[in-house]
Design a protein around this nucleic acid. Structure first.
Lengths: 110, 110
DNA sequence: TTTGTATATTGCAATATTACGATAAAGAAT
DNA sequence: ATTCTTTATCGTAATATTGCAATATACAAA
């Protein structure tokens, strides 16, 4: 118990859940917001922007990177982090498909 | 420690994280998929559709309901569950806004 | 009223997540 | 070479999530 039963769901369902899970923390949303705000990619100051200790931020960045939401490359002695739009497009597409699927069905019971 | 530091983030950030978190489990994605598939709302057979025990499904439904992703109303001795499109629109809108924000900035470093 | 059916709640074990201090690693600057 | 700066990793404590058996609740049907 306690472990998610990933085997029993489709690959698509697991993929979407993993993506959503990665966004499921305000610090990680804040990181995305910040990466959008600063037009540049060299983002060594994310730690200063967040109300969290450096190791915690590093961990959140790692999770976002694992989920493919951000990309990071070594740039001198700091790291160049940026959004991976391909992945974010996938999530956007999924949301959009839910909405358009629902719209084609005039489901009026609720 | 272990508790998310919600106080330190904006309401928007927390709201979006809560929403994403609710979608961050394959069973809950599967529930949404199923609610989309069956055009009708009377969904007493969700339990049979999922590879999980009834209490577990009930718990996932509760979480989706708490996040406002589904609505549920008592209907005789079963429950009428359906998607809450308003909430799903919010998430879709957030994703879309990320993409359009990024597009207006031609960020070519990565 | 009793029985059946559907969903919710409780309690608990297993596991995962969150957070951070301490420390490591690795390049930059002096 | 030593020091500084930046990011990552390790270890660990606190908390949350996942899953289910047992049980409760609530209505329907007989």
């Amino acid at each position: 118990m306690g472990a998610t039963k990933t085997d029993h769901f489709t690959e698509q369902q697991n993929a979407m859940a993993t993506l959503a899970k990665a966004l499921g923390h305000p610090a990680r949303i804040a990181i995305i917001d910040y990466l959008l705000k600063v037009n540049a990619c060299i983002c060594g100051d994310i730690v200063n922007e967040l109300p969290l200790a450096q190791p915690t931020v590093s961990q959140h960045l790692k999770e976002l990177k694992n989920a493919g939401i951000i990309k990071g490359e070594i740039e001198g002695n700091s790291i160049c982090y940026c959004l991976n739009m391909d992945t974010l497009q996938k999530l956007a597409h999924y949301c959009q498909s839910i909405i358009s699927t629902q719209q084609t069905q005039n489901n009026s019971c609720c």
